[in-house]
Amino acid sequence: MPAPLLVFAIGNESRGDDALAPLLLRQLAAQDFPQAEFVEDFQLQVEHVTDLSGRDAILFVDADMSCAAPCLLQPITAAHDHSYTSHAMTPNSLLHAFHQFYGKAAPPSYLLRIRGYGFELGEGMSPEAETNLQLAEAKAQEWIAEVGTQLKPDN
């Protein structure tokens, strides 16, 4: 049986600040969160719908150049955005694919966008992104604690 909470990091450590989500995921995974499972990949693909099954809530984490610093946590919903016509998908389109595949709505889902600044191949993480990473970790810990207290008693 899968853990009730799923934290899914999307990013590539070889691309500068795109390392934010995988690094955050590893920081969280090193802590004591028995109610959570941590999954990491370079990008979302339609096969990831199976990772969402059986969860009570999902947190997607991704670096983003368009959000305000340090990070932004928002609920998300399924949306058919045609991103799965290419190789990668958005979290919204993965939730839509979940609905199509399983015939029911995906679990409550959230997106934690961490402000990044440079995403060039071979670059290290920027100092600003490192600061944002620490603040995003606190936000993710709060989410796990808050959502974890709302779990069904049998979880």
Results as ranks from 00 to 15, higher is better:
53 S>G: 07
14 S>W: 05
30 A>G: 05
8 F>K: 07
78 A>C: 11
27 Q>F: 13
120 E>W: 00
113 R>S: 15
122 G>R: 03
114 I>P: 04
90 T>Y: 10
119 F>V: 07
42 F>M: 11
113 R>I: 06
64 D>R: 15
124 G>A: 13
55 R>L: 05
155 N>R: 13
111 L>T: 09
61 V>I: 15
110 Y>D: 10
69 A>M: 05
139 K>S: 05
115 R>P: 02
109 S>C: 12
144 I>N: 04
38 F>A: 03
61 V>Q: 09
44 L>K: 06
76 I>V: 12
41 D>W: 11
27 Q>P: 01
155 N>T: 06
25 L>P: 04
97 A>W: 14
142 E>D: 13
93 S>H: 14
122 G>E: 01
35 Q>W: 02
57 A>F: 01
49 V>H: 11
87 H>C: 06
51 D>L: 07
32 D>Y: 08
41 D>H: 15
123 E>K: 12
22 P>H: 12
47 E>N: 07
31 Q>V: 01
61 V>S: 07
63 A>D: 03
72 L>A: 14
81 D>R: 10
124 G>D: 14
144 I>Y: 01
122 G>N: 01
56 D>I: 00
108 P>L: 10
48 H>W: 15
129 A>L: 00
48 H>Q: 12
94 L>R: 13
89 M>A: 15
124 G>N: 11
125 M>E: 00
141 Q>G: 05
85 T>V: 07
89 M>Q: 10
132 N>E: 03
27 Q>H: 10
3 A>G: 02
98 F>V: 02
48 H>C: 06
131 T>N: 09
135 L>V: 05
153 P>K: 14
90 T>P: 05
58 I>Y: 15
55 R>G: 02
43 Q>W: 13
108 P>K: 10
8 F>S: 02
106 A>F: 13
52 L>T: 07
29 A>Y: 08
109 S>G: 06
136 A>K: 09
122 G>C: 02
43 Q>E: 11
110 Y>A: 09
30 A>R: 13
36 A>I: 06
15 R>W: 01
41 D>E: 13
